[in-house]
Amino acid sequence: MKRAAPIAAMWIALIALPWWLPLIGGYTELGSKVLIYAIATMGLNLVLGFTGGLSFGQAAYFGLGGYGAGMTLKYLVPSTPLAILVGTVVGGLAATILGPLVMRRRGIYFAMITIAIGQLFYFVIVRWNEFTGGEDGLAGFGRQPIHFGKFVVPLNDINFYYLVLLCFTLAVAVMWTLLQSPLGHTWVAIRENRRRMQFLGVRPERYVWASFAIAGFITAFAGTLNALLFNFTSPQDLHWILSGDFVIMIVLGGMRSFFGPLVGVIIFVVAQDYLSSLTSNWMTFIGLIFVLIVLLFPRGVFGIFERRTKIA
């Protein structure tokens, strides 16, 4: 129970965020963006950190979620919850269908295949410009007020932040439950010793598939919120550069810890926001962050404090 206090403190800080973030020079959208990326990276970390599968194309499912949500709002129904649902299902199903092609692979090869598969969706979105807006991105949709019977919640920036926080809480609860379940323990066991699990009669591929699919759904879920946050989504949301950013955020925070990705996201997103306002060469600095983390802090921020590798 010793972890309960910091976690409660974290949630209180998150609930109060719209009040204190502007005081230190931030803005509410930045808070929403951090939480959205945190959902995406914590989902990805189910594969990367807990199952040991080097998924390097996760932005594809993030972007698919975004396009799913945006296109639902633009062409089908003006309903925010439905948009989130459709986007999540589209991205998640894509990961589920492609899972069998990657689940047998390990290490470098797993990474290569996941990157390359991600590019497929990138080009589909870029070239299908009648519906997706092509290179310019998909605009012309907006998040709609949510109706509870007669009670209507308009989604201004602050309310939307609370919707994102609700979604974040939900996603965290789901992931935490999964990791405490036999399924989650099997993932960790596969990461630690895949062959031994095979000897025990477990079929690792199936569990890797499950992990990849669930991560796909969660990342797509985050992607839908990202599209709603900006009322816009672009092919950059599927690009492998973003996939790489996700992975570095996870490593930065600590890939063996449950909330590690959240810490990584906070540092990375704030640094990116700050650097890009400071210099046009911000890409070099982001690149340097990559190199320095790998060379100096391979265990991430949490790793500096906790020497033991803890599981969940």
């Binding site: 990367l48 080097l54 390097f56 290490g107 470098i108 990474a111 550069i241 790489g244 992975v247 570095i248 490593v251 060469n281 890409m283 070099t284 982001i286 690149g287 340097l288 962050i289 990559f290 190199v291 983390i293 790998v294 060379l295 391979p298």
Partner: peptide
Amino acid sequence: PIYKRSDPLYSLLLTFGLALIIED
């Protein structure tokens, strides 16, 4: 310096960062 790390993740991230730096 990172050959000894068995996880291929690190070389992937390192060269990824290099790619960003070189392009910029």
